[in-house]
């Protein structure tokens, strides 16, 4: 009984830990509005990245460091890969310590529609970041965010 109890305890603790990390959600039509709606009167940072984009890893490294310095930074990470990549996306997010970050992946075969819904002037270059203030005015930036740009935005 004790052994069973220990086994079940371990299983339970493991399950709990697994659930503690936020699952990667599927970003589909309407998800962008949902992200905004959940953050009314809040500033936040929305970053699009992909497993296939070398500069994106530099961006994630920089963001991981910034979040350590500024834990209040509300970061939303959206991968433009496919739902087949969810496990690998989760692994990468864990590696960078983004277990509590609101994470998404594009719905399959809808990248163009989703990009257009978010920003018709975004041509798919990655990483692509949007700095939102509390009124939801946004600043779009292609390429790796410069830490000073992020810090200036945080201090606003």
């Amino acid at each position: 009984m004790v052994q069973r109890c220990i086994l079940l305890s371990l299983l339970w603790v493991t399950s709990f830990l697994a659930l503690a990390e936020q699952p990667v959600k599927i970003f589909k039509a309407g998800s962008y509005a949902e992200v905004l709606q959940r953050r009314q009167e809040q500033s936040f940072l929305l970053v699009f990245w992909s497993l296939d984009c070398p500069p994106c890893y530099k961006e994630l490294t920089m963001l991981a460091e910034e979040i350590k310095k500024q834990p209040q930074l509300d970061l939303v990470l959206v991968s433009t890969d496919t739902t087949d990549d969810i496990d690998e996306i989760q692994q990468k997010l864990n590696k960078f310590g983004f277990t509590q970050v609101n994470a998404w992946v594009f719905q399959n075969d809808r990248a163009q529609q989703l990009r257009h819904e978010i920003d018709p002037n975004w041509y798919g270059e990655l990483p692509r970041s949007y700095l939102f203030d509390d009124k939801h005015n946004r600043q779009a930036i292609s390429g790796i965010l410069k830490p000073f740009v992020l810090q200036r935005w945080v201090s606003l």
């Binding site: 070398p54 798919g124 990655l126 390429g143």
Partner: peptide, 9 residues
């Protein structure tokens, strides 16, 4: 076009 990004174009 100064950008440290993957344009994919």
């Amino acid at each position: 076009w100064q950008v440290e990004a993957c344009p994919h174009h």
